[in-house]
Design a protein around this nucleic acid. Structure first.
Length: 869
DNA sequence: GCAAGGTC
């Protein structure tokens, strides 16, 4: 037996470092083995994994989708193999001579499985070493020390529960995904996927869209009256004061009646009845107060952040789920906040709110609020319903960044996290509600006022709406003047689409996905062309996938599958069922699914193909009977082409920026769908592509001067090529303002394509050629106006000077190269794609940007974005 | 190349 060091294994590097610090009393030193961090002190080593370091998959002979019938995957063997070679190698090296191994992975089911995977790797190289398991729910001195003093054993049943999930997910996901993809002949990057979590998520979106489609709006009317309290008691000397006093005493009330069930209703469904009521209301001069009700309401501060609620709050600040998590992850890695992936909404016992608040008292931004909170006699943090063992709720650590350490976005998210913590230890707010009902000519009017009498947590947490609505103090029997009346014609609205955070919340309620994956699932739906735009809308393909699944494999789009699996996993964890029981039964169900599916394979395939085409179809070709579809050129740019190609070669260009989205709106003249170009914050509506092309054809070029490359005054020594043709020098080329068929505008040479000199012009606004001239370039100055809008005109000036300034700004684009993974060439490409600096890189929509760049996928873009933070 | 779950 060797007397080697003791090895501690955690789930991630960050946890390894912190546990080493705690156990060593901060004396641990960091070393690298195989490029992996290892913390050493005394006779101990601590290494962090990166989640699962081994993966489950079918053996390589099952890799060819065409060679293997999807149904064969159901009973195919499943292998486990290292996916993080360097970490696995380091783990092997360290465990070979270890005298003891302690598994300290996260305290949840997946953590138990990751621990078991590590255990098996250890066993491969060291048969006898004792292996213990420690469990703690937050990495604090007390919890960690206690856990290591009372080591336990690995729970193999719990790990097996996790393994069963891996197998069921792989078998169902792979077999069905391959089947659908093969049936629709989609084998490239655009395969058609389904899975236990993405399936029901997609169905959620599609179902909502079905409701919207089926929605039949109904007309109704609402009546309002402005009421005014009589405030003529003491007229003041200043008439303006009277004016404002009157404003203060005036408020809006709404007409209501009691419906058949005796409930208050505001909507009048009958037009004539509304008209009649309005007639009455218009003719009354006063309303008499019939009831006044006051009550105070306590408004408790929110619970601590779990992942879902954090994403929701960040969403209301304008961050996508993906982006919010990416920022949170960076703040976590930098040590400013706790682990962002957690279900827990109850602070651990050893979080001392006073101690943590203390850390903020000296801070410029938070000091005052922290101080105020500390002055409370008692501090009792709020708690949510969910208390789990995995990680504490998201809260700031005692380590504070300075504002300069963070980007603007990071700071905004950090402040949100800090203020949420503040809110959870702040006092409740108090509202005073005042409800007034008045009678106007037999019609009931009501007004609800609310006043914040104690701001409480709103003082430190400004993200919730705390606006008041004013209703003056009135008394029963008091007469109020009716100063204005209004009848509004309205229509019932279809249900709203799910936004990203609503989607994540609903997934959580349905019990599908996990805190760490829900936002990724949504991203996956975008990547698979199932949803587009934000809030997400389902494509035709998505509808077809859901329809096909509903008919033949209902379970894969149902939340029931997760519920059943969850129950099975619990049975395994309790030792009441085995992994084999569960996976066998699941395979049998899938066999049945395949029986129906294989009979109708062709039909399913056709349906999917039709939908795929519909997603790309803009309308009918004006020159042939075929469809016009969006295509991608070999250079990676989008255009519209005839589906009858090569018999019909009709095409229409599209703008070079962004990814085209087919809108519902259709051009009345041409019957083509309008196009929107998705390009992050540069997103714009292109409109009907044929209208754009015709506008360009009709608009004459407007000559504004000589071309500096080939026009009058250009280099007079004219070099000639072999044929005696001039390649440079004067050719009489002129500069003109042009409108291209793709919709963009520019200043270009009239000799195009022989001379391709050009200067950019903005896409929006009216171009005005002024009388002023640029002395340097002999060109008129240009001004952009914005029609009726409030926007100030833009004096763009001489187009050459303007372009020079623009380019000078772009030189700063070398800033892009400071981002890990971006070199000179990539920075060039990025600039060509319209991404000039780090902020715009971070705001870019990964899909749209990837589409603009050869050889770059959306995942790469996301990597840059997180590296740029 | 398929899933979902860890992690970066």
């Amino acid at each position: 037996m060797s007397k080697g060091p003791e090895l501690i294994i955690t789930e991630k590097d960050n946890a390894a470092r912190r546990i080493a610090d705690i156990l060593s009393g901060e004396s641990a030193e960091s070393d690298r083995v195989n490029g992996v961090n290892v913390y050493k002190w005394g006779g101990k080593r601590c290494i962090g994994l990166s989640g699962h370091v081994v993966g489950v998959d079918f053996p390589p002979e099952y890799n060819d989708w065409r060679d293997v019938e999807p149904v064969e995957l159901i009973d195919a063997p499943i292998d486990k193999h290292p996916t993080q070679e360097n970490i696995v190698a380091a783990l092997r090296r360290l465990s070979r001579h270890a005298s003891r191994v302690v598994i300290a992975t996260d305290y949840d089911r997946e953590g138990e499985l990751i621990g078991k995977e590590a255990y098996e790797l250890v066993r491969e190289v060291n048969e006898d070493v004792p292996v213990d398991r420690v469990r703690f729910s937050s990495i604090t001195d007390r919890e960690v020390t206690e856990a290591f003093e009372n080591p336990d054993e690995l729970d193999f049943d719990l790990a097996a529960a996790g393994e069963a999930r891996q197998i069921v997910d792989l078998v169902w996901g792979a077999a069905l995904t391959r089947f659908l993809s093969l049936s629709a002949r989609q084998l490239g990057d655009d395969f058609i996927s389904v899975g236990r979590v993405q399936g029901p998520t997609l169905k959620l979106i599609v179902d909502r869209e079905r409701e919207i489609d089926a929605f039949d709006p109904e007309d109704y009317w609402e009546l309002f009256a402005d009421l005014q309290k009589d405030s003529t008691e003491e007229p003041s000397a200043d008439p303006r004061a009277d004016e404002s006093a009157r404003d203060e005493e005036s408020f809006e009330a709404q007409y209501f009646y009691l419906d058949e069930d005796g409930n208050e209703a505001e909507r009048v469904w009958d037009g004539e009845a509304a008209e009649e009521a309005y007639e009455t209301l218009r003719n009354v001069e006063t309303a008499t107060v019939t009831s006044v009700r006051r009550r105070t309401r306590t408004d408790d501060p929110p619970a601590p952040f779990n992942t879902t609620q954090f994403i929701r709050a960040a969403g209301s600040l304008g961050y996508s789920a993906q982006r919010a998590m990416s920022i949170a992850e960076d703040l976590y890695t930098a040590g400013y906040m706790t682990y962002p992936r957690t279900d827990n909404t109850v602070y651990p016992e050893d979080l001392d709110p006073r101690e943590l608040l203390d850390e903020f008292t000296a801070n410029r931004t938070f000091g005052e609020d922290a101080q105020t909170l500390l002055e409370q006699e008692e501090i009792e943090p709020t708690a949510g319903d969910e208390e789990t063992t995995d990680h504490p709720p998201i809260h700031p650590t005692g380590e504070l960044p300075s504002r300069a350490d963070l980007t603007e976005d990071e700071w905004e998210v950090y402040e949100l996290v800090v203020r949420r913590f503040f809110a959870t230890v702040a006092e409740s707010a108090k509202w005073e509600h005042l409800r007034v009902v008045a009678d106007a000519g037999g019609l009931s009017l009501k007004a609800n006022g609310k006043r914040l009498v104690k701001a409480g947590y709103h003082e430190v947490y400004p993200y919730f709406n705390s606006s008041e609505s004013f209703v003056p103090d009135v008394e029963e029997g008091e007469a109020l003047a009716v100063t204005d009346t209004e009848m509004e014609a309205k229509q019932t609205q279809p249900p709203r689409r799910y936004g990203q955070s609503r989607l994540i919340e609903t997934m959580e309620q349905m019990g599908i996905g996990t805190k760490a994956t829900r936002h990724d699932v949504i991203q996956k739906l975008y990547d698979r062309n199932y949803i587009e735009s934000d809030p997400p809308r389902p494509t035709r393909l998505a509808r077809a996938v859901v329809e096909a699944s509903e008919e033949f494999a209902e379970l894969i789009v149902s939340e029931e599958m997760t519920a059943q699996l969850e129950a099975d996993m619990q049975a395994i964890a309790r030792g009441e069922a085995t992994l084999d029981d569960v996976t066998e039964e699941s395979r049998e169900i899938l066999e049945d699914v395949f029986e129906g599916l294989m009979e109708s394979g062709e039909e399913v395939g056709k349906h999917l193909q039709k939908s795929l085409k519909a997603d790309k179809t803009v309308g009918t070709c004006p020159e042939s009977d075929h469809d016009l579809v969006i295509r991608k050129s070999r250079r990676g740019s989008y255009f519209i082409g005839c589906d009858g190609y090569p018999d019909c070669t009709y095409t229409l260009p599209l703008p070079s920026t962004g990814k085209p989205l087919i809108m519902d709106e259709e051009c009345e003249e041409h019957g083509l769908s309008h196009i929107k170009m998705l390009a992050g914050r540069k997103t714009f509506v292109h409109g009907c592509p044929l209208c754009k092309a015709e506008e360009a054809d009709e608009e004459e070029d407007l000559v504004i001067g000589a071309c500096p490359e080939c026009g009058e005054g250009a280099a007079s020594e004219t070099p000639r090529d072999g044929d005696g043709e001039a390649v440079e020098g004067e050719h009489g080329g002129e500069l003109a303002i042009k409108r291209l068929r793709s919709g963009s505008r520019l200043v270009g040479c009239t000799r195009y394509p022989d001379c391709d000199y050009s200067l950019p012009l903005p896409r929006r606004g009216d171009i005005e050629v002024t009388d002023e001239e640029c002395e340097e370039h002999d060109l008129p100055k240009i001004r952009i106006t914005y029609g009726d809008s409030d926007r100030e005109p833009w004096d763009l000036g001489c187009p050459i000077c303007n372009y020079r300034e623009y380019q000078a700004e772009q030189v700063d684009g070398s800033e892009l190269e400071s981002v890990k993974g971006i070199g000179e060439k990539t920075a060039e490409k990025l600039k060509a794609a319209g991404v000039e600096d780090v902020p715009s890189l971070k705001e870019a929509e990964p899909d749209a940007l990837a589409d603009l760049m050869d050889g770059v996928g959306p995942d790469t873009v996301r990597k840059w974005q997180s590296a740029a933070d």
